[in-house]
C-alpha cells in the first residue's frame, strides 16, 4: 500500500506540473493579457510599459523557465490586476469553498442514497416514481433559478435566513440547499440503478430464501456491494464542488474559489489563474486518491497492483 501511495504521489506531482504548463501555454495563446490589465482606452506606450512590468516582453521560453522556477517554490507571482501575491489571495478563499462543499455533500450523500434505496426497494411503485421525479428534478434544475426562488421565498417573503453573504448558519442554509440538489439527484439515480442490478443477483435470492427481511437485504448486503458506482459519482460531485460553485457563489455573494477563477480568467490574470488551478488540482488529486482507497476498503478483492503487470 505504501509503495502504491508513493507512486500515486509522484504521478500527482507530474499531473500538477502538466496542468500548470498547459495553463501557462493556454493563457499566453489566448489574447493579450496586457490589454485587459490596462483597459480599452490605453495608449500604445503605456501598453509597452505594462508589458515590461509584467515580464511579458521576454521570449516565451524564458517566461516559462521563470514560471516553473517560481512554481517549484510555490510562488505564482503577483496578480496582474490586484498587484498582490496570487497564492495567498487564493488560499483566503479556500475555507468558504470547503465549508460549502462539505455542507452540500453532507446533505446530498445520505439523502441521495436513502432516496435511491427507497426506490430500489419497491421498483416501479408510487414511491419509486415520486423519488424519480425528485431526483431527476435535481439534475435538470437550473441552479440560478433555484437560488433566486429560494431567496425570494425565504428571506424576502418569510424573513428566514439571509439573502446573501458569508457567515453563520443563517447565511449557510440557502447556498447549501441550492448546491446539494444536483449531486443529490445524481447520487439517488445511480444508487437506484446499482441496487437494482445488485438485487437481481443470486446471493440476494439466497438471502431472501433464508428469510432475511427485504429491508435488511437491501440496506445491509446489497447496498455495500452497490457502493462502487455511488462512490465514484460522489467523488465526481465533490470534485465539481471543489472546483468552485460559480453560479451559487455569484448569486449568494459567497467568497469562494469559483468566482475568483472566473474573474481571473476574464481578466487573463495569469498568475492568479495559475495559482487557482494549482490549488484546485491538489484538491482533485487528493479526492480521487481517497475514492480509490475507499474502493479497496469496500471491496477487499480490489487491489491496486504495482506498476508493470500490464
Amino acid at each position: 500500500m505504501l509503495a502504491y501511495l508513493g507512486r500515486r504521489l509522484l504521478q500527482s506531482v507530474a499531473v500538477t506540473f502538466v496542468v500548470l504548463s498547459l495553463v501557462f501555454v493556454a493563457g499566453r495563446i489566448l489574447g493579450d493579457p496586457v490589454r485587459l490589465v490596462v483597459g480599452i482606452e490605453a495608449s500604445e506606450e503605456r501598453v509597452q510599459r505594462v508589458r515590461e512590468q509584467l515580464n511579458l516582453n521576454q521570449p516565451l521560453g524564458e517566461q516559462y523557465a521563470t514560471f516553473i522556477g517560481d512554481a517549484l517554490s510555490l510562488q505564482f507571482g503577483v496578480s496582474f490586476w490586484q498587484k498582490v501575491p496570487a497564492l495567498p489571495r487564493v488560499l483566503e478563499r479556500i475555507p468558504a469553498t470547503l465549508t460549502l462543499a462539505a455542507a452540500a455533500l453532507a446533505l446530498a450523500l445520505p439523502l441521495g442514497i436513502t432516496l435511491g434505496a427507497l426506490s430500489a426497494l419497491r421498483p416501479w411503485s408510487r414511491v419509486d416514481r415520486i423519488t424519480n421525479v425528485i431526483s431527476l428534478g435535481g439534475v435538470s434544475i437550473v441552479e440560478f433559478w433555484l437560488a433566486l426562488m429560494l431567496i425570494l421565498i425565504f428571506p424576502v417573503r418569510l424573513g428566514w435566513f439571509k439573502t446573501s453573504g458569508y457567515g453563520g448558519i443563517e447565511y449557510f442554509v440557502l447556498p447549501a440547499l441550492t448546491l446539494c440538489y444536483k449531486p443529490l439527484g445524481r447520487i439517488a439515480q445511480i444508487t437506484r440503478s446499482a441496487l437494482l442490478d445488485e438485487l437481481a443477483k443470486p446471493y440476494v435470492k439466497a438471502a431472501r430464501a433464508r428469510g432475511l427481511k427485504e429491508r435488511r437485504v437491501v440496506f445491509v448486503h446489497a447496498l455495500k456491494n452497490a457502493a462502487v458506482p455511488v462512490l465514484t459519482i460522489s467523488g465526481d460531485e465533490l470534485a465539481a464542488l471543489l472546483n468552485g460553485a460559480i453560479i451559487v457563489e455569484t448569486v449568494f455573494g459567497w467568497p469562494g474559489i469559483g468566482r475568483l477563477t472566473i474573474q481571473a480568467l476574464e481578466r487573463r490574470d495569469l498568475p492568479m489563474v495559475e495559482a487557482t488551478v494549482f490549488v484546485v488540482a491538489i484538491f482533485i488529486i487528493v479526492t480521487n486518491l481517497l475514492v480509490d482507497m475507499a474502493y479497496t476498503w469496500l471491496n477487499p478483492r480490489i487491489r491496486f497492483s504495482a506498476a508493470g503487470d500490464a
Partner: peptide, 18 residues
C-alpha cells in the same frame, strides 16, 4: 459595501432589510 454581482439579489437584500 457588500459585493453582490446579481441585481436580483441586491434588490432582495434591500427588501429583506439586509
Amino acid at each position: 459595501y457588500r459585493f453582490l454581482p446579481e441585481d436580483q439579489v441586491r434588490t432582495a437584500a434591500v427588501q429583506a432589510g439586509e
